[in-house]
Computed example of a mutant assay.
Amino acid sequence: MEQGAEGIRLQKVLANAGVASRRVSEQLIVEGRVRVNGTVVTELGSRIDPEKDLVDVDGTAVQLDTTKRYVMLNKPTGVVSSMKDDRGRPDLRRYTQDWPERLYNVGRLDADTSGLLVLTNDGELAHVLAHPSFGVTKVYIAKVDGRVTAQTIATLTRGIELEDGPIQADKARLLDSSGGSSLVELTLHSGRNRIVRRMMAAVGHPVTELVRRQFGPLHLGTLPVGKVRELTKVERGALLTLSRQGSDQTDTGADPSGEDRENS
């Protein structure tokens, strides 16, 4: 961090980023609520380089690089998680046409799975959040065949054995069971391929429909299927905070190999 004549005053950087007014930003700095590159800064004369330095307020990352774009898509079924599909299937290009930046997807959802997918041009964030060693939490709603019992829910959280090793849901709950089907909510941090479908099949309840409702701090909310929107300032901050934590984790020895092939 630069304290000399070079760089931009920290309170001006915060104001330009939309954190608060210049006056309120000065108050945040004096109160010790602002960190630059992990170090608390309380001097109002402090200057930083917005292109290099990382800033957070109350532990939440602040986006300083305005060239980075963060978009949420409610992916429909039948669309593959690729910017160009070699087999000519519907891909993600149609959902990125409104932005001049070249966006790409963070992780993947199977073609027959719908729900929350993040599109961005922030390569570092995409790498960290899709990284299996980081284990970002995802929440799915699965419609399955048969009437799921409380015992089955307990089995999912206790853990089951699959062909590629044991797996357990972080959380599982039964939302509805009527007729010949049930709705189950599963929370997982695994990045293993088609894991929700394989788990439910293993307990005797094959998935007929699957949607991802949450990805880390992001919630799908009321975004209609097939629609996109930019993340809010609060959502961007939460996502960048998660990304920076993950980046620190990989820097301190987490296995950088592998890829989130998607857990649906």
Rank of each mutant, 00 (worst) to 15 (best):
M1T: 02
A5D: 01
G7M: 02
R9A: 05
Q11N: 15
Q11G: 05
Q11F: 10
L14V: 09
N16Y: 08
R22G: 13
R22F: 13
V24L: 08
L28C: 12
L28K: 11
E31V: 05
G32T: 07
G32K: 08
R33M: 05
R35A: 14
R35K: 15
V36I: 12
V36D: 00
V40C: 11
V41C: 13
T42N: 02
L44H: 07
D49F: 05
E51I: 04
K52V: 10
D53L: 10
D65P: 00
T66R: 09
M72H: 09
L73F: 02
P76I: 13
T77M: 12
M83Y: 00
R94E: 15
Y95H: 03
Y95M: 06
E101D: 12
V106K: 00
L109V: 01
A111E: 09
A111R: 06
S114I: 04
G115R: 01
G115D: 12
L117H: 01
T120V: 07
D122F: 06
G123V: 06
H127V: 02
H131T: 07
P132W: 00
K138A: 05
A142R: 13
A142P: 10
R147W: 06
Q151S: 14
T152G: 05
L162Q: 03
G165D: 13
A172F: 11
D176R: 15
S182A: 07
L183A: 14
H189E: 00
G191V: 05
R192V: 02
R197S: 02
R197Q: 10
M199A: 12
M200H: 06
A202L: 00
E209N: 14
P217S: 09
L220Q: 04
G221Q: 07
G221W: 04
P224N: 06
V225Y: 06
K227V: 05
T232Q: 05
K233G: 10
K233Y: 03
A238I: 06
A238E: 14
L239G: 12
L240D: 04
T241F: 01
L242G: 07
R244Q: 08
Q245W: 08
T250R: 09
T250N: 08
G258C: 11
E259N: 06
D260Q: 09
R261K: 13
R261Q: 14
R261E: 08
E262V: 07
